[in-house]
Design a binder for these strands. Structure first.
Length: 825
RNA sequence: GCCUGGGUGGCGGAAUAGGUAGACGCAAGGGACUUAAAAUCCCUCGGUGGUUCCCACUGUACGAGUUCGAUUCUCGUCCCAGGCACCA
């Protein structure tokens, strides 16, 4: 018997795969296509367990789909621009490009060592000029359409990373990458107009049945769609103050207005009034407050009276205007109407500043009295103090009130979004240059298409200074204006790296295409991605940006589909000792060590078996041992009798007279069915469990000496199935064993076993016998037994008779082939 | 506060349409083989109690409900994880 040496087996199989270009695909119209994609990694140095897990899951699906005859595109590449490369440059004096490409080559080797079935001929790295030049090209197209624009606005800025961050990249006031507190800074930046797609991105969430509920929920939360109305409150100077509210049903209860300190009217109103000084100092104070501090719920709500009033257009009441630190300029109109009776914040503000409270919604059970109310009533009820809306249910009245406002031209129904446009400028070096030139005379001038790419210069030294390296490098930024030819300056900011990952899945379809950004024909053959697999941490970032970018490219005519990812699987994290595996926690397991010790097949098997893909995986060294043990057990099962089995013709079903043969036949077919169904619904852990069961059954079968030719043939059939079913999970050992049985590996690559329906159900079933829902006995009968015959048997059972003594049977419920429940008094 | 998920043995996890709770694996205990160990193989393994080759009761976070029957459906409570949050 040959010892199981994973390393030898795996290196042998991998070199064959590589030599035969087994995973290379081309567009084949005669076959059904299947685009399987896993989120590409950032080349940080080495792969980690999260990658091993993600890519193992993907590889099972890729290999399984290939075996089922689909034309599978399974690519891999590198999200290669980004900050860590610059940090490495600063810390170790190595150029970001060198660092990145070295990491790529090491990590590529690691992924190959895992036996992942990628078409490496389609590999892309986003830091490659041939990649980002087309991104610059897309930027110019977006600029033409007004989808890329420049504006000055307060932006999130991380002092440690020395760059701007998009809203999506700020987590609880801290930087998503380094965890440093994010500050607000007024800067002129480039933005992508993702808000134009806010509604569609929101509404399409309901048209993505293949996405996890959780992710769609997160995207919806992020987009934050809310229905309401904009209402103009006339001011005494003749203009009007517009506010946004989702609660027009409380309009009759407005007792004051509040403006954001940044509101253009804020200072204007107080000017020249006795409140002038106080208002001015309040605004300055509020503006100086840190934004994340101001956004804290616990921060005290403060305000100041401007000395001016508006008229409530419904009641004619004169209502004072305040300025408050809790009103946000970015949301709605930067001004709110305040209804202290029905909004807790307004209530607290009113109490502090002694403002009146008017109740307009009355709950069913209590009478609200403004004098005694201890808090705002935010629930539903009957409208009161509301003129001709009195007596209406507030919820039902909202559309009618909006109609009423629109008829009188006081207000207009409006939908507001929380989503902001995507700020893409980064004051960093290691990214794709934004292809724009600034000319004193001509203004913002896009780089002409024929001048692309704007190449990121590699011959400069990267060191940590306050500014981006490019802004210090005259050779880069000194340029003549393409229009007037006078000296001008090139943009020195680079694009957010999330731009690269917003379209890489399209480039995989045509990696070598050079005549334009994308080869529409090939893109249309492969898109959409049939299955996308990656971590849930990108639920709003990458996945939302990609949905946006794909729409833009759809409108520009480069891709036929609107949504890029048909099905999404978000795999859980890898946990060890109760915490996410990470260098800082010191609880990492190095994939290299694991592969060295147990081999790639064991590493893959453990990751797949220990928990279902979407859940977190609890790392267990003993669990790895267990997976290794199982593979050795399979190895022995075949190698111990390979010679004996080699020339035997396998059968997958055997005569019904022999009970043991029959049982094994059933087990074979039931396992094929179970594994097929389980892979289809991503229950990879239970698929493996059922293969283990089949192996256990075969060992049981072998406890008796098997000499009859029929037994040997059936044994071979069972073993062949173990190997084919295992193949997507542990391809190296499976192929090796397959070959040992004298079989052709090439057939195997495209073969998935079929089960016979008749053998997935045994002809004898164990019926459960319950009395009043309590299990009392079990009994084996023929499948589909006649009901009256069954009752006769069941009533005659000793244990049942004992329990039924002296009781009257009221009815008997029979679930065919499962259970009998006798209901008695 | 709002919106999603989730809570099952010592542990990771099964139970696809309301029908045998705990598949499969890990750990643990016992045994076989061995001079010994490793490896391998076999047995036991939710809890409590008993007349202990068997039987009873109990058990899927907690409390109700629907049902002949609930881990699964409904309502309420508690806890955990994630998202959003002074968003008007």
């Amino acid at each position: 018997m040959k010892q199981y040496e994973p390393r030898v087996v795996e290196e042998k199989r991998q070199s064959i795969w590589e030599k035969e270009r087994l995973f290379h695909v081309t567009e084949d119209k005669t076959k059904e296509k299947y685009y399987l994609l896993e989120m590409f990694p950032y080349p940080s140095g080495k792969i980690h367990m999260g990658h091993v897990r993600n890519y193992s899951i993907g590889d099972v699906i890729a290999r399984y789909k290939r075996m089922r005859g689909l034309n599978v595109l399974h690519p891999m590449g590198w999200d290669a621009f980004g900050m860590p490369a610059e940090n490495a440059a600063i810390e170790r004096g190595v150029h970001p490009a060198t660092w990145t490409y070295e990491n790529i080559s090491y990590m590529r080797k690691q992924l190959k060592r895992l036996g992942l079935s990628y078409d490496w001929e389609r590999e892309i790295a986003t830091c490659d000029v041939e990649y980002y030049r087309w991104e610059q090209w897309m930027f110019l197209k977006m600029f033409e359409k007004g989808l890329a624009y420049r504006k000055s606005s307060p932006v999130n800025y991380c002092l440690k990373c020395q760059t701007v961050l998009a809203n999506e990249q700020v987590e609880g006031g801290t930087c998503w990458r380094c965890g440093e507190q994010v500050i607000q800074k007024e800067l002129t930046q480039w933005f992508f107009a993702i808000m134009r797609y806010a509604d569609e991105l929101y509404e399409y969430c309901d048209k993505l049945p293949g996405w996890p509920e959780r992710v769609l929920n997160m995207q919806k939360n992020w987009i934050g769609k809310s229905y309401g109305v904009e209402v103009g409150f006339p001011m005494e100077n003749g203009t009007s103050l517009t506010i946004f509210t989702t609660r027009p049903d409380t309009l009759y209860g407005v007792t004051f207005m509040v403006l954001a300190p940044e509101h253009p009217f804020a200072y204007e109103l107080a000017k020249g009034t006795p409140y002038d000084k106080e208002v001015f100092s309040f605004i300055e104070r509020a503006k100086a407050q840190d934004r994340s501090f101001r956004a804290e719920i616990s921060t005290k709500k403060e305000g100041v009276f401007t000395g001016k009033y508006v008229i409530n257009p419904l009641t004619g009441n004169r209502v004072p205007i305040y300025i408050g630190n809790f009103v946000l300029m970015e949301y709605g109109t930067g001004a709110i109407m305040s209804v202290p009776a029905h909004d807790q914040r307004d209530f607290e503000f009113a109490k502090t500043y002694g403002l009146p409270i008017i109740v307009t919604i009355m709950p069913d059970n209590v009478m609200l009295d403004p004098q005694t109310m201890a808090e705002a009533y935010e629930g539903d009820g009957i409208m009161v103090n509301s003129d001709h809306f009195n007596g209406a249910q507030n919820r039902g009245a909202i559309p009618k009130i909006i109609d009423y406002l629109e008829e009188r031209k006081i207000g207009k129904g409006k939908i507001n979004y929380r989503l902001r446009d995507w700020g893409i400028s980064r004051q960093r070096y290691w990214g794709a240059p934004i292809p724009v030139i600034y000319c004193d005379d001509c203004g913002i001038v896009p780089v002409p298409y024929e001048d692309l790419p704007v190449v990121l210069p590699l011959n400069l030294e990267v060191k940590m200074v306050g500014k981006s390296p490019l802004s210090e490098y005259a050779e880069f930024y000194t340029v003549d204006c393409p229009i007037c030819k006078k000296p001008a300056k090139r943009e020195t900011d680079t694009m957010d790296t999330f731009v690269e990952s917003s379209w890489y899945f399209l480039k995989y379809a045509c990696p070598d295409y050079n005549e334009g950004s994308l080869d529409r024909k090939k893109v249309d053959y492969w898109m959409p991605v049939d299955q996308y697999i990656g971590g849930v941490e990108h639920a709003v970032l990458h996945l939302l940006y990609s949905r946006f970018f794909n729409r833009v490219l759809n409108e520009l005519g480069f891709v036929g589909v609107r949504e890029p990812f048909k099905n999404l699987l978000t795999q859980g994290m890898v946990i060890k000792d109760g915490a996410k595996m990470s260098k800082s926690k010191g609880n990492i397991v190095d994939p290299d060590y694991l592969i060295e010790k147990y081999g790639a097949d064991t590493a893959r098997l453990f990751c797949l078996f220990a928990s279902p893909p979407e859940k977190d995986l609890d790392w267990s060294d003993q669990g790895v041992e267990g997976s290794y043990r199982f593979l050795q057990r399979v190895w022995r099962l075949i190698t111990d009798r390979a010679d004996e089995l080699k020339d035997v013709e396998a059968v997958f079903e055997s005569e019904k007279e022999n009970e043991e043969y029959k049982q094994l036949t059933y087990k074979i077919h039931k396992t094929i069915k179970k594994v097929t169904d389980d892979i289809d619904r991503f229950h990879l852990n239970t698929a493996i469990a059922s293969i283990m069961e089949l192996v256990n059954t075969i060992y049981k079968f072998l406890e008796k000496e098997r000499k009859e030719p029929e037994a040997i043939r059936l044994l071979k059939g069972a073993i062949e199935n173990v190997i084919t079913l295992l193949f997507p999970f542990v391809p190296h050992i499976a192929e090796e064993l397959w070959e040992m049985l004298g079989k052709d590996v090439h057939i195997f690559e495209t073969y998935w076993p079929e089960f016979k329906q008749e053998y997935t159900k045994e002809d004898k079933v164990t019926m459960v016998v319950e009395i009043n829902g309590k299990l009392r006995d079990r009994y084996e009968v023929e499948r589909d037994i006649d009901e009256s015959r069954l009752k006769e048997i069941v009533y005659g059972l000793e244990k049942i008779k004992k329990h039924l003594e002296g009781k009257e049977i009221k009815k008997t419920i029979i679930i065919p082939n499962k259970l009998v429940n006798i209901v008695c008094a």
